[in-house]
Amino acid sequence: MSAAVSMSKPTEHPPPAQQRPVRPRTWWKAAAVLVVVAAVTVWSAIAVEVDFGALFRNAGNASRTIGQLLQPDYSYFPETVRPLLETLETAVISTAVAAVLSLPISFLASRATDPSTPLLVAVRFVMNVIRSIPDLLYASLFVTAVATGALSGILALVLFNIGILVKLVSEALDGLDRGGQEAALAAGSGWIKADRSAMLPEISPIYISQTIYVLELNIRASTVIGLVGAGGLGMLIDKVRTFYQYHYLSLVILEILVLVVVLEFVSSYARRKLVR
């Protein structure tokens, strides 16, 4: 409307108050949000004892460290090969185990494939609990309770992966077209058969793509779970940092970087191919 008016008389300014609808007043809401955010921020700043001055006081220390970090010692490479392999193996094994375990659980955790509400709620609750515990915490628990080394890392990652995979796959199941399943049910099959013959083929590309994504997560995670003693590159990081061997540390970090970037590249390529 106002556009038409102003088009016809381009030189005159139409009185805006009558042309536009009155803007809803929301400034007090914005102000309230701002106050809350500011309050939380002040509280958090006090809690963590913010001290930007420390950064400058320690600048000398930092520059020495950074200087060492910028010169990775490549002669250390042979020593890192075993932990590197262990990291990769941990990631691969835990992805494989978690992928196998989480497929049936995903079907139990989706409204679309699980007709029983109590079972659905129970499975989802357990999955929520599993997901809210960080991977490093699982790792440190297993290291103390079971054994140090790769086994604890694998157990920790398997739990962590099941949480993620079940969430992603069951949500994908929720969004699927249920025509085939309905047809199967109407033709007299049970839920298990209907899900297997109608839903499984539909979900499999997503399932595979999410599994590759989880492998990517695992590579990242398995490089650090060693910090609490669960094998792989993380253990090496812990070792060289306690001896302040920053030349070595930077080599290890460089390896992690390369590993993660290469894997990200491969994984995004594979996932693109899958989805297409």
Partner: peptide, 8 residues
């Protein structure tokens, strides 16, 4: 290594 073990 720079700022030590603090929450900050």
């Amino acid at each position: 290594s720079v700022t030590g073990l603090t929450a900050f």
